[in-house]
Design a protein around this nucleic acid. Structure first.
Lengths: 237, 237
DNA sequence: GGTCAATAGATTCTATAGAATCTTTTCGGT
DNA sequence: ACCGAAAAGATTCTATAGAATCTATTGACC
């Protein structure tokens, strides 16, 4: 699960990693044009691997790629974000039901462990970036037992978001999300597929609501308590 | 919606088109190794655009791409196919509900028109390949009014399948699917989101069941009535 | 005879240079 | 002054050659 470990296996992978990091960190923003020669120079590689990385991001839906006209970072309207959360709600709810069908005891143990790590980290007041990562690991520990195709589909949905550090930076939010997780894990422990689906579905939409109130707060100018660390610190290297 | 029109906008797009066509036609099969130099020679281009096309197919999930070790076409277990249909059932059901929320009268008219084209073609005993295409157009005419992200997500699920000419080659199957469509369109006409979702959900799983019985028939050696035209005829150029 | 290291072959990967395409500017005509 | 065409500039796209990496074979050593 850990990214950015050791040396990248190819220049393309390296560029892809850097681009995603710069995208998350806000160095590159929606609407920006991505000039392949500029990126190549910036990352110290030739245009060839840059082009391959751009093709991948275009297939992911992260960027718009028009033939002979270059690539631009897709901008994200609130409505698109809402749609994405609704799709996550459907898919991840379904994945929970499927997980119950196929979950071994060992799988279940790993899920419980992942949840405990997140709960503990929340209690200890760990930084939002780490909490967000632990949250992701918990979610995918559930989906791990479903099917490679299902996992990939959900990963594609997650890839469209910046890590939601803003959510995990507010104590009341993170404890609310932890509470949702407990509900999901209870259903999983009972091997109750429909209940797990329902709980996960509601959890994702709950996260969407929290995200909205968080955005509203920021729009009003009131900085949320325990704000996240500056995004620029997320930069990889 | 029509593919393979005129000249491709780039060598990469051309290679992508050819690869998908060869994949559908059965020229390239699951498990096959894709040697980029061989493909380049075969299609009369240099390895560079071939590599870009392979990166896209890898992002789509159509092929497995391992660094420095080349690409192989993913093979498709029956269980994976089942999972894919279940995901389609979820996503396309949801898309129907979303479509009702956002559908204009003009959108609805286009959907009805697409359905009439398919019904008419079924009645006239048109070839299965065309029926399969019209079916796809009907489905996506419904999703057209939802959201670009939703459409892309569903397209990704559809991209994993060969066109199901086997299904539309059996008269009893195609009329059953047409019947499902009518049910969906009735719900859409009533602007009944939940009913449309439910109808579409069942329709996709119905298609899955038909596909299974079709596979069973072929396994028994009994060729289905009005079998599809030889797959090799689908080849583009 | 079996195991490990070294070599040869094949394939992928990357950089570079020139061709193709698009955009902007300039110039001439109305 | 406004519109259209041509040219200049910038960017993308493709082919090619050499470097890096992996796989298969051979040979030496235990």
């Amino acid at each position: 699960m850990s990214a950015s470990d050791g040396l990248p296996q190819s220049r393309t992978a390296y560029v892809l990693e850097r681009l995603k990091a710069d995208l998350d960190a806000g160095v590159i923003n929606p609407g920006d044009q991505l000039r392949q020669t500029a990126i190549a120079k910036r990352y110290g590689v030739s245009p060839t691997p840059v082009r391959e990385a751009l093709r991948i991001l275009a297939a992911d839906g992260t960027i718009d790629y028009t033939s002979h006209r270059g690539a631009t970072v897709r901008d994200f309207t609130p409505e698109m974000a809402h749609d994405l959360y609704r799709m996550r709600s459907e898919m991840e709810g379904f994945a929970c039901e499927l997980a119950v069908e196929r979950m071994s005891d060992a799988d279940h143990a790993r899920i419980v462990a992942a949840n405990e790590r997140l709960i503990e980290a929340t209690r200890d007041g760990v930084d939002p970036t780490t909490l967000s990562l632990l949250n992701k690991e918990l979610h995918f520990s559930i989906y791990a037992g479903t099917s490679p195709i299902v996992i990939e589909c959900i990963q594609l949905l997650w890839a469209r978001f910046k890590p939601s550090v803003t959510l995990w930076g507010v104590t009341s939010f993170s404890s609310a999300l932890d509470h949702d997780h407990t509900e999901i894990l209870d259903a999983l422990a009972r091997r109750d597929g429909p209940a797990a689906r329902e709980a996960m579905s509601r959890h994702v939409m709950h996260a969407w609501e929290l995200r909205q109130t968080s955005d509203d707060l920021r729009a009003t100018g009131a900085a949320p308590a325990q704000a996240a660390a500056p995004a620029s610190d997320v930069e990889a290297s």
